[in-house]
Simulated scan of single mutants.
Amino acid sequence: MLQVALDRLTKDECISITEQTYECIDYIEIGTGVIKEYGMDIIRDFRKRFPDKRIVADMKTCDAGKHETRLALEAGADITTVMGFAHDQTILDSIQVANEVHKKVLVDLLQVPTERFARLKELGVELVSAHIGKDTQDHTAGDSLKRYDGLSEDFMVFVAGGISPESVQRYEKLNPVVFIVGGYITGASDPGEASCVIKGVIPKK
């Protein structure tokens, strides 16, 4: 499945790109930077505009798990993100809140040591994002992916980090259920066409 990541964009750009890509995307991710600029209102707006799509609020919660998770999910997100290096209690609280409303938490593994992965499973984490950060994509992408080998044995894996049609194959070995794609789509002259091109090369689950 395909998740479009809307970040470092204005609200109008986010809406326009979503409308253009609507037919080929499965998830809409409202990026951290967009949420910081527009708050929960943009999640509420997207819930009304795009009722048939699953919305991911990339909150990157590090603390105050109950509060931030409730904010995002009550605003209309189906999934909210919590950082894997957050305190165990933060992760537990976030999962508890999500379970109460039959929604999900996606744990971001950015800068999380591999020895913590087993603990995340113990905490009840189901969804993880095998994430290569924006600032390191050009330098460490190949090496960074190796640390995520075998994740799909314990979690449902989302993959993120400079994904394009040319790099999809590199991520396939992680057996992901969702490919998160940002710049390849949002920076394209025709985002709609770009989303359908990459959807066409993503393995179907």
Rank of each mutant, 00 (worst) to 15 (best):
I30Y: 05
A86D: 05
V112H: 11
E115G: 09
E122P: 01
Q137F: 04
V107E: 02
G65C: 10
A98S: 10
K53M: 00
I132D: 06
I15H: 04
S167I: 04
A72N: 01
V34C: 05
F46Q: 06
R54S: 11
V168L: 11
R147Q: 14
G65K: 02
F179V: 04
V197G: 00
D26C: 04
R8C: 07
E19L: 05
K53S: 01
S152Y: 14
Y22E: 14
I17W: 02
V101H: 08
A141E: 11
K199P: 02
P51H: 06
Q96T: 14
S189F: 05
I163G: 13
S167E: 12
V101P: 03
E37V: 10
D45C: 07
V82K: 08
V177R: 14
E13L: 07
G200N: 15
V105K: 01
F85V: 15
V181E: 13
P51T: 02
V181G: 04
K199T: 09
Q96M: 12
D138N: 15
R44S: 10
K66I: 09
S94K: 00
R49A: 07
E100K: 13
D63S: 09
I185M: 05
K134S: 09
G200R: 05
A57W: 01
T81K: 02
Q89H: 11
D108V: 09
P165A: 07
K66H: 14
T90L: 09
E172N: 14
Q3E: 13
G182P: 13
A194Y: 11
M40T: 04
L106H: 05
A77D: 03
S144M: 12
G150N: 07
A77K: 02
E126I: 06
A64F: 03
K66T: 15
R54I: 02
F50Q: 03
D143V: 15
L73K: 03
A77V: 00
S152H: 15
